[in-house]
Amino acid sequence: MHELGVVFEVIKTVKNFVDKNDLTKVDTIVLQIGELSSMIPKYIHECFPAAIDGTEFEETKLVIEIIPAAAICKGCKHVFNIIKHKSQCPECESLEWGMLTGKEFSIKEVIAC
């Protein structure tokens, strides 16, 4: 599955971080996924147990924070949700806007010791 390779990549990055910072145990990994990223959080959660199976992260939990798809209108500077308002400014109906957030796909932090 598409998401599995990505979850392996997450584990690899966390492993590097753990080694570099001499950590002994990772309790939680926190990911940030934008509403407009190509990743589906539900599938990431489903792949996670397979990716940590037999690794030092077997007891690690996964938390996914969803980042809204936000845009700022070029006309009236109103900030709105792109998905909810179907790519159109709800204030002035302009279709000209710049994306602020929503394409993120990153490892935000770990809770570890």
Binding site: E9, T13, V14, E109
Partner: peptide, 18 residues
Amino acid sequence: MKNFKILEIKEGIFDNNN
């Protein structure tokens, strides 16, 4: 009880591979 703390990583998921 071990002392867990929050450690920021802030890395894109593909950064390492890139």
